[in-house]
Design a protein around this nucleic acid. Structure first.
Length: 787
RNA sequence: GCCCGGAUGGCGGAAUCGGUAGACGCGGAGGCCUCAAAAGCCUUUGCUCGCAAGGGCGUGCGGGUUCGAGUCCCGCUCCGGGCACCA
């Protein structure tokens, strides 16, 4: 666990730690060695905003929030190895985050580049693509993100695009998280084609397509407004129109541009450049356009347009009066039924040597042709972009680089780490990072030549800190390295990761990338598993009035009031009981009643356990009732164990409640001391991972030793088999009678018992059964001719 | 538009392999205890007809498969989520 410390826990945290703690305690009772540490993702914008508001240093603010969060976690009774607690903002952690940066830099996995980036005016910093919502807003502040051209630091996550995609296959993760990552990586196979430019033998325009088979239908080509050749390929007559379009496109962020346009229904804004290119398949001259529906960031920033087989190109062609040539025969009556572009499979037409082939074969043939002619090549493209990690903020891990006018961006030598931000800084609402205003911090010497240099003032995205904390957890005591090879190999991968769905892309993708990169740069050993999280469980959100419960929404319900009123155990039980862990939960007016109900259950358990072992209880021979109670005890062990194994915590609690209800009646009615004692002891074990405080106390009162550390109870196979069951008798599928029968009843006896039933005879009303379906011992269905 | 989930009493939910729909809890009703209340305990609680015994209906809607469907298949509706000019 690596929570962002936002202050006292809210119910989302409580739920998360309750599930996590149940797993930890249960697996420990199963005899496993369990490593369960907790640390704090303690860099981040809220602390800095608070500093601007109140003048408090972010460290002071953050340490206070950590103390609050930690207290509410400790009071919940969750077991963590606090010796291993780490914090992103701790100098010893900063040191290793910076070392990792330097090693990635050395290996070419970190680089600095000038690029159009997402700028959030609210946060006064750039953002990674992953942090921009589909509607072009900042996921934190909700402000509309702008595009700025800046020189920034990137991590080369795209190197691992294929591996990150393939690695998903072996993971026990929710399918929808895998799907989200697959979509985000967005692999597509196709070809790059170099188009000749008419009258410019010195130039070619390279386009990417997933449908090289449709190239005969290419009736125009389009380049993105930001394309480097856009200027050069615009003729004098078209210059003004193109310039206008490019200016308009530049004023919007790319994500905004793609989000604002709803599919193909909107106008495709574009203009003719005045230049012509050549279709390499048939040698025809086709016009070259600039249009904002083509994105510079994907593929080559230019496309071949095939209106007949691409709906976007179709719409654009209609608008600009461009020809449409079908290269795949659409299905019967396609056009009569209003069909426009047809992108499905079919037989090739109007395509020279491809005619008669199907799409898949034609793709291959087209690529072979292009490669043979030297006009193109096979190519795989990804939607995934490199991870922009620069942030123009103070409260983050400083990027350990200095800028020298002679040697450029020079890494800080490893023996000079960590680079720490100074304390004597002023937090002003100017939007500028205090680091950028701090002359003492900025003044540096070039490690290469000793020239005066300027220290980098950007800090790293806080997702960098959380991309390797799980490795540090394995070995947080190492003062010489981020972690020792032996420790990470011993503990990794994480067997069970628990978190919210909000991490589906950001954190989980970055952590997968980091784990691989750390191995490849030699910081982690080669035998470290390349997937850090083997099993992932995504818990449901706690919602209130339709939105996620969080401090920023102001709808937080702190656990402290329940610690006081019903106790931490009742609150834990509530979170387990209220529904499947994967489901969202709507906090409402009735919720307190349910929590109190969980408290009442624990009260009943308490009263029950306090009167046993009952000195006045019977001993000696077991009665029929005693045996039935024993059977119930062992069945409960079986059920609760199964429930926990399959994450069905709500039914695990329900089965314990059922058992308490049964024992309560039993205890009032001359119980056998040993039977009741066995039942109570088993119950305390089963509830120990769910309600650790109450069960530990009751156990101590009964046995004067400790429940914690005892093994998980086993059930007796002979006792979980029922001896009598209720057999349902149906007539034509409707239940007409229920008969108690021995569990071992044979098919013939079951049939006879069913047909002997007076109720069945009534229901038959003289009709003759034509068929009797027997599923002994549970069910018999008597079927008549007219049924 | 595409891809995933989901829809069960007044409410949260259960039904693990096609075989008793509604476990467990909340809420409601009635009762016991008490001078009274709180707490606790007991009974009851899907809808409906019936004095009762008992019957009919019932898992979003419409079909289908089956002796039998909440569960499987086909076609919809609504809700939630993800993706969406990615060539």
């Amino acid at each position: 666990m690596y929570p962002y410390p936002s202050g006292p826990a809210h119910q989302g945290h409580v739920r998360n730690y309750t599930f996590g703690d149940l797993v930890v305690r249960y697996q420990t009772m199963q005899g496993k060695a369990v490593l369960s540490p907790l640390g704090f993702d303690s860099f981040g914008l809220p602390a800095e905003n608070a500093a601007i508001r109140t003048g408090t240093h972010p460290r002071v603010f953050t340490d206070a929030r950590i103390a609050e969060l930690k207290e509410s976690i400790v009071r919940l009774g969750a077991v963590y190895d606090w010796r291993r607690e780490v914090r992103s903002h701790d100098p010893s952690y900063i040191h290793w985050t910076q070392l990792i940066f330097l090693r990635l830099l050395k290996a070419g996995l970190a680089y600095r580049a000038h690029a159009p980036v997402n700028w959030c005016p609210g946060c006064q910093t750039v953002l990674a693509n992953e942090q921009v919502l589909p509607d072009g807003r900042c996921e934190r502040s909700g402000d509309v993100v702008e595009t700025r051209d800046l020189e920034q630091w990137f991590f080369k996550i795209t190197t691992y695009a294929d591996e990150l995609l393939a690695g998903l296959e072996g993971l026990e993760w929710p399918e929808r998280v895998k799907v989200m990552q697959r979509n985000w990586i967005g692999r597509s196979e196709g070809a790059e084609i170099a188009l000749e430019v008419v009258g410019r033998p010195d130039l070619t325009l390279t386009v990417f397509t997933t449908r090289p088979d449709t190239a005969f239908g290419m009736t125009y080509a389009v380049m993105a407004p930001e394309h480097p050749l856009a200027d050069e390929l615009t003729t004098a007559e078209q210059r003004e129109a193109v310039a206008e379009l490019r200016a308009r496109a530049a004023s919007e962020s790319e994500i905004q541009r793609t989000a604002a346009a709803e599919g193909a229904s909107l106008e495709k804004r574009g203009v003719f450049t005045g230049s012509w290119v050549v279709n390499p398949m048939n040698g025809e001259r086709i016009p070259l356009y600039v249009a904002d529906y083509v994105l510079m960031g994907y593929g080559t920033g230019a496309i071949m347009a095939v209106p007949a087989e691409d709906q976007r190109d179709w719409a654009f062609a209609q608008l600009h009066g461009l020809p449409v040539v079908r290269t795949v025969a659409p299905p019967e009556r396609w056009e009569e039924q209003g069909g426009e572009a047809y992108s499905g499979d079919g037989v090739k037409v109007n395509s020279g040597f491809l005619d008669g082939l199907r799409v898949a074969e034609a793709k291959e043939a087209a690529i072979e042709f292009l490669e043979r002619e030297g006009r193109g090549c096979r190519k795989v493209n990804y939607r995934l972009r490199d991870w922009l990690i620069s942030r123009q903020r103070f409260w983050g891990c400083p990027i350990p680089v200095v800028h020298c006018s002679v040697h450029g961006a020079v890494p800080v030598p490893e023996d000079q780490l960590p680079v720490l931000a100074p304390d004597d800084v002023e937090f002003l609402p100017s939007g500028q990072s205090p680091l950028a205003l701090h002359e003492g911090f900025k003044r540096a010497t070039c490690p290469v030549g000793g020239e005066p240099a300027v220290r980098e003032t950007d800090t790293m995205d806080t997702f960098v800190d959380s991309s390797w904390y799980f490795l540090r957890f394995c070995d947080p005591f190492d003062a010489q390295a981020p972690f020792s090879p032996a420790a990470v190999v011993r503990w990794m991968p994480v067997d069970q990761y628990i978190g919210g769905i909000e991490h589906a892309i950001l954190h989980l993708m970055y952590a997968r990338f980091f784990t691989r990169a750390l191995v490849d740069v030699g910081l982690a050993p080669p035998d470290l598993p390349r997937e850090p999280f083997r099993r992932l469980f995504t818990q449901g959100m706690i919602r209130m009035d339709g939105s996620k419960m969080s401090k920023s929404k102001g709808n937080l319900i702190a656990p402290a009031r329940y610690y006081e009123s019903v106790g931490a155990d009742a609150l834990r039980l509530f979170h387990l009981f209220v529904g499947p862990p994967t489901d969202d939960f709507d906090w409402s007016d009735q919720t307190d009643d349910v929590i109190e109900g969980c408290g009442r259950f624990l009260d009943r358990l308490w009263r029950l356990a306090e009167r046993a072992p009952s000195p006045d209880g019977r001993s000696g021979v077991l009665s029929g009732t005693d045996v039935r109670v024993r059977r119930a005890t062992h069945r409960t062990i079986q059920q609760v164990t199964g429930d926990i194994e399959r994450w069905s915590y709500n039914t695990a609690v329900a089965h314990c409640m059922e058992q308490v209800n049964l024992l309560q009646r039993y205890a009032q009615d001359d119980p056998h001391a040993e039977v009741l004692g066995e039942a109570l002891d088993a119950l305390l074990h089963l509830l120990a991972p769910m309600a650790p405080h109450v069960t530990a106390e009751l156990w101590e009162r009964r046995h004067a030793d400790r429940l914690h550390g005892r093994p998980w109870p086993q059930f007796d196979d002979a006792l979980v088999i029922e001896e009598t069951v209720t057999m349902v008798v149906q007539v034509n599928g409707k239940v007409r009678d229920r008969i108690g029968v021995p569990a071992a009843i044979g098919e013939e006896e079951a049939r006879a018992a069913a047909l002997a039933s007076a109720r069945v005879a009534d229901a038959l009303g003289g009709a003759t059964p034509v068929r009797v379906v027997v599923r002994a011992p549970r069910l018999v269905n008597v079927v008549t001719a007219d049924g």
